[in-house]
């Protein structure tokens, strides 16, 4: 399914062999962390991926950055497989795709100062002519990221800075190499609410300047709606709903999305909320199914839902839903 989209995620799966495989029956069991995900993205597009914990969002992020190789399927950037790109020229690929991690406190080696840390990518990718020019680039980046005074911050060690400052530096580091594709894996979930907005805005500003496509992985629905162009909802390794952000959030069609959004708290205490109750734990990702993975918790489920995984239906305007009981 190669096509001319800027980024084409084609049927990507990540199956980890499960512990306790039965030796005698020969039956192999897998944890299907990501199971057949296909999405297309345009240049400069911001895609939000939402879903509860354990649904495979972060695994998908790591596959996109090729920190792990998918067990099947592939990701194409401008029609070329990222696996091939990485094999052909690892440095060029790493410049093209960058990832920002969830935990800013662990994103830097504790033994180096911020300047030394930011110097590494510049040295590796030969950005800037000499040490002085590189230092200037670093200081400018720090200033532009709202880290004042830059000279002072550059001399500090990671443990001397706050989580918000560290996450800014983490984003700045990713942006120093001018990537065309940025994966932000819950970049603000470990930070104080008061600094989240600034950091998100900084990420968006930088990626817009460089015209980079962004995948924003989060479990925060309102935040994702605020920043993304498109939204994909994941459940147990599969995309269950995909479409324009406003459309998906205001008019969710998949029962899981509906339940997720109805349970999303509002700051207005007077707002009458009709929560959809979801019973039970999500089934284990070890051989789920047959049938719709959500069926056992779904309020709309019928007998058919337990038989076969539902087809994906286009409900108009590129809004796709993987559910057979839409009406």
């Amino acid at each position: 399914m190669k096509n001319d989209s800027f980024i084409c995620i084609d049927n990507v799966s990540m199956w980890y062999p499960a512990k306790g495989n039965r030796v005698f029956s020969g039956e192999k069991r897998y944890v299907k962390a990501v199971d057949g995900v296909s999405i297309n993205m345009d240049r400069g597009e911001i895609l939000g991926i939402i879903g509860e914990s354990g649904c495979g969002k972060s695994t998908l992020g790591r596959i996109l950055a090729r920190l792990e190789n998918p067990t099947s399927g592939d990701v194409y950037i401008e029609g070329e497989s990222t696996g091939n790109l990485l094999k052909k020229d690892p440095k060029a690929f790493r410049r093209l795709v960058q990832i920002v991690f969830q935990n800013p406190y662990d994103s830097f080696t504790p033994r180096d100062t911020i300047e030394e840390i930011l110097m590494r990518p510049l040295n590796i990718h030969s950005i800037g002519k000499d040490k002085d020019e590189r230092k200037k680039i670093i200081l400018e980046a720090l200033e532009s990221g709202g880290l004042h005074p830059a000279e002072e911050i550059a001399r500090r060690y990671p443990h001397e800075l706050s989580g918000g400052q560290l996450q800014r530096i983490s984003i700045l580091r990713a942006m120093l190499v001018e990537p065309k594709f940025v994966i932000a894996d819950e970049p603000v979930s470990m930070l104080d609410v008061s600094v989240r907005a600034e950091i998100i805005n900084m990420l968006l500003k930088l990626s817009r300047e460089k015209d980079a496509a962004v995948i924003f992985i989060s479990h925060d629905i309102s935040l994702t709606r605020y920043i993304s162009d498109k939204v994909a909802v994941m459940y147990l390794g599969r995309i269950v709903e995909y479409g324009e952000a406003d459309e998906v959030i205001s008019n969710p069609r998949h029962p899981y999305t509906q339940a997720l959004i109805s349970n999303c708290g509002s700051i207005d205490p007077d707002e009458i909320m009709d929560k959809i109750k979801v019973e039970g734990e999500p089934p284990t990702p070890i051989n789920p199914g047959p049938g719709c993975y959500f069926a056992s918790r779904c309020f709309k489920a019928s007998k058919e839902c337990f038989k076969e995984y539902p087809a994906t239906h286009d409900v108009g305007g590129g809004h796709k839903v993987a559910c057979d009981r839409l009406y």
């Binding site: 790591r62 950055a65 920190l67 690892p90 440095k91 690929f93 790493r94 410049r95 795709v97 960058q98 990832i99 991690f101 969830q102 935990n103 662990d106 994103s107 830097f108 080696t109 590494r120 990518p121 590796i124 990718h125 983490s170 580091r173 990713a174 190499v177």
Partner: peptide
């Protein structure tokens, strides 16, 4: 650890990561 994954994503080679991190 995240900083090792970040270094990989940053384009550092395996030997660089071994000796530096």
């Amino acid at each position: 650890r995240t900083f090792v994954k970040a270094a990989t994503a940053m384009g550092e080679s395996r030997l660089q990561i071994l000796f530096k991190y």
